[in-house]
Computed example of a mutant assay.
Amino acid sequence: MKELKIETTFFVYDTIEALPEQIQKLMHKAGKARLKAYAPYSQFLVGAALLLDNGKVVTGSNQENASYPSGLCAERTAIYYAGAQYPDAKIVSMALTAGSLKNTTKQPIPPCGACRQAISEYEVKQQQPIEIYFMGETGKVIKSESLKNLLPLVFEKTVL
Rank of each mutant, 00 (worst) to 15 (best):
Q24N: 02
N54A: 02
A49V: 08
S42H: 03
D53M: 13
L45G: 07
L52V: 10
A37H: 10
D14L: 10
L19H: 08
K32F: 14
A37I: 14
Y38N: 14
G47L: 09
E21N: 13
A48E: 08
L35D: 12
H28Q: 14
E17M: 07
N65S: 05
A66L: 11
P20G: 06
L51Y: 04
N65K: 00
F11H: 15
V46T: 15
S67M: 12
L50K: 04
Y13N: 00
Y13F: 13
A37K: 11
S42L: 05
T59E: 03
K36S: 13
K29Y: 08
L45P: 00
Q24G: 01
A66I: 12
T9C: 05
I16V: 15
T8A: 01
D53Q: 05
L26C: 11
Q22N: 13
K29N: 04
T59G: 06
H28A: 11
A33C: 05
A66F: 11
V12P: 00
H28S: 10
A37Y: 08
K25Q: 15
D14M: 02
D53W: 09
N54Y: 06
L45S: 06
L51M: 06
K56C: 12
Y41M: 11
Q24E: 01
L19E: 06
F44T: 10
Q63G: 00
G60H: 10
E7V: 04
Q63P: 00
S67V: 15
F10W: 03
N65F: 08
A66V: 12
L45T: 14
Q63V: 10
Q63E: 03
N54S: 11
L52I: 13
L51W: 00
P20I: 02
V58N: 03
K32W: 13
A48C: 15
L50M: 10
L35I: 12
A66S: 03
Y41F: 15
V58E: 02
P20H: 07
S67P: 00
P20D: 01
T15H: 13
V46M: 13
E21C: 07
Q22R: 13
E21V: 15
L35K: 08
T59P: 02
A66Y: 07
Y38S: 14
Q63Y: 07
G55E: 02
T15E: 08
V12D: 01
A66D: 02
A30S: 12
G47E: 03
D14S: 11
Q22C: 04
L50S: 01
A39D: 09
N62Q: 01
L19W: 13
L52C: 09
Q24Y: 04
V12L: 04
A66N: 00
T8R: 07
